[in-house]
Amino acid sequence: MKAIKVLVSAYEASGKTTITSKIKDALVINFDRKEYGFNVPHANFNNYEGMSSVINFINEKINKYKDHFKALPKVVVLDTVTQLYSAMARYNGAKYTGFNIHSQNNADTLDFNAYVEKILIGNGISVVIVAHTTVDPDSGRHIIPASGQFSKAGSWLSVVNDALFIEKASGKLVVHLKGFKYPTRTTLKDVEDKIAIEDFDINAYLDKLLASKTESEKFVL
């Protein structure tokens, strides 16, 4: 069973949730502490009590999805991991002190990424990671906030092979698929640098990524 991980990032109110709400056969896990505004299968996560509470919640909602639709979701959308990470940091900051806060943040991040890779991807469920971005005042680069070793390793961009960025310029939304200016990368050989959001079909893009992964795995020894 083939599955992929894709990062979708942008500033606040730049169309991240709108574009990912169009993904077919998806279950959205909403971490944003507000009601999800689209009529697609979703679950609102509101009470962080350690990373196990997140993993158990996602597993429970996947089982509910399977009971209702008689199949596993093809995609789990995590919207947004930025808010999930903030909830984790608040919880650990209140529960631990000193270096133990950073140590627990690192441990929880590793546990979550291992769950995504080994359980979700391992069971053929693709994962779309939605994240907010900010501009680093020192480098001027667009970054996805994190802390500790995870931040130094490249944050959520470091755990995916494919990432797109939605730019809001002059009142128009543009999807960037590759280039160095924004947090983007792609495993596709023939793809445009950017495309107007109204011309971008996220389902067709995910299908191409899946096909590309299937093709490349023929060469794995």
Rank of each mutant, 00 (worst) to 15 (best):
S126G: 14
K16E: 13
T80E: 11
V127Y: 00
F112L: 14
N123P: 02
I29N: 08
I195N: 07
L210N: 08
L164P: 01
Q83G: 08
Y182F: 15
N203L: 01
N203K: 03
T82E: 10
I195M: 13
T17F: 05
S53W: 12
A13L: 12
T184E: 13
L210H: 09
L84S: 04
F180P: 11
G154D: 08
G140P: 12
M1A: 14
K118E: 15
I144N: 07
N30Q: 10
N113A: 02
N123I: 04
P41M: 02
Q104C: 03
T186Q: 08
T109I: 14
N44F: 09
D25N: 15
L173Q: 11
V174Y: 05
V116W: 14
L209G: 02
N113C: 05
K2Y: 14
F150A: 07
Y96I: 01
K22Y: 00
K189P: 00
Y96L: 05
L7M: 08
K2A: 12
M1Q: 13
I55G: 07
L173W: 07
V191H: 12
D138W: 10
K152S: 03
F57R: 05
L72M: 13
P41S: 04
I144T: 09
H176E: 07
Q104Y: 02
Y11W: 10
A196F: 05
A169D: 13
